[in-house]
Design a protein around this nucleic acid. Structure first.
Lengths: 126, 126
DNA sequence: TAAAGCAGATTACAAATGTAATTTAATCTT
DNA sequence: AAGATTAAATTACATTTGTAATCTGCTTTA
């Protein structure tokens, strides 16, 4: 399942995050949303949208005169792809070292810890 | 502590991984080490070393006629920096979502799970 | 000593990325 | 209908990155 996800650059991720929160959106809606968090010019956001479209990471609905944009991949799939390559690069492919570092690093809430523990308990320890 | 880590590109990470395993090393030693894992030409590796040097991520000892190279930052510091920016970008800053995804994703060994659980148990659940 | 080889320095060049501006075509407004 | 506005398309341009090759000067070797 879930075809190879094309690579998504750092700036493009911001755009994707907006579209995953809600879609379809017009370019202007994406622009507005991003203007709260970044200082990108509208044209910049538009360029990012166009590049994502060309890469097929984003789809376009051209029925209306003003196009609307939507993700072609689930956030989960993209996160997975990105995290996998990240871990290979940075942690020599072993996810455990990353987990260890982050569990120690971040002060996780009690809730978080409980949840993680329960997930661990459900792991098929082959 | 641990000054801001300059950004390290994907290819540069490979070089750093070599130097973290053992250093100082001559360029040729780094090249040899990488030739086992990549198909980069020697000149390519040399360029990467030079760029890392220019960015001060790598230091050079020029006492000998053949220079030796060594990391200026610990692997841990670089991993942390990289992971932090990664998490902000990809997981909206919440480390838990990443942990959850990876614990579920990877089939961790029983050992790993035990270790993680013990780390969780030691967390100050504030 | 002339040629060959090697390390280091410099230069190359295309693709990806960040960050837009300009141009074009349609539409709304006066 | 002419001008203003706007969305979409096209173009721009510097920096970073991947991936090297060429040049220079010292050393080794025939």
């Amino acid at each position: 399942m879930s075809k190879e996800v094309p690579s998504i650059s750092e700036a493009e991720w911001e755009v994707m995050n907006v579209l995953w929160k809600k879609s379809p959106l017009t370019a202007n809606e994406v622009i507005s949303s991003l203007q709260e968090q970044t200082d990108w010019k509208p044209k910049t956001v538009r360029t990012l949208l166009d590049r994502l479209t060309k890469k097929k990471v984003v789809g376009v609905n051209k029925d209306q005169k003003v196009y609307t944009f939507f993700p072609n991949y689930s956030q989960d799939d993209c996160q997975r792809a990105e995290a996998q390559s990240f871990i290979n690069r940075i942690y020599g492919g072993t996810v455990k070292s990353l987990l260890v570092q982050f569990i120690q690093e971040e002060s996780l809430s009690e809730e978080d810890i409980k949840e993680l523990r329960s997930i661990l308990d459900k792991q098929p320890n082959k």
